[in-house]
Computed example of a mutant assay.
Amino acid sequence: MRVLVPPGSLTLGGTIELDEEESHHLAVRRAHSDELVELLDGAGGVARGKARLRGRVWIVEVDAVELRPPLAPLTIAVGAGDRDHFGWLVEKAAELGVTTVVPLETERTQAVATRLRDRHVPKLRWAALQAIKQSGSAWAPAIEAPGTLERFLARAAGGARLLADVGGDDPPVRLDEGPAVVLIGPEGGFTNDERSLIDSAGYAAIALGRFTLRFETAAVAAAAAVAIARGRSAHG
Rank of each mutant, 00 (worst) to 15 (best):
R2V: 00
V5L: 03
P7R: 12
S9H: 10
L10K: 00
T11F: 10
T11C: 15
L12K: 10
G14W: 03
I16N: 02
A27E: 15
A31I: 05
L36K: 13
V37N: 00
G44N: 01
R54P: 02
E61N: 11
V62Y: 06
V65C: 13
L67K: 10
R68N: 03
P69G: 07
L71N: 03
L71E: 11
P73W: 01
V78M: 04
G79C: 05
D82L: 02
R83L: 01
F86E: 00
V90I: 14
E91N: 06
K92P: 06
K92I: 08
A94Y: 03
L96F: 04
V98G: 05
T99L: 06
V102M: 01
T106Q: 06
R108V: 05
A111P: 05
R115V: 01
R115E: 02
D118I: 01
P122C: 08
K123I: 03
R125P: 03
R125T: 05
W126L: 15
A127V: 12
A128Q: 09
L129M: 15
A131Y: 09
K133W: 01
Q134M: 04
G136W: 03
S137Q: 14
W139A: 04
R151E: 14
G158W: 03
G167Y: 08
P171W: 04
P179S: 12
L183W: 02
E187K: 11
G188W: 05
R214S: 15
A229T: 13
H235Y: 08
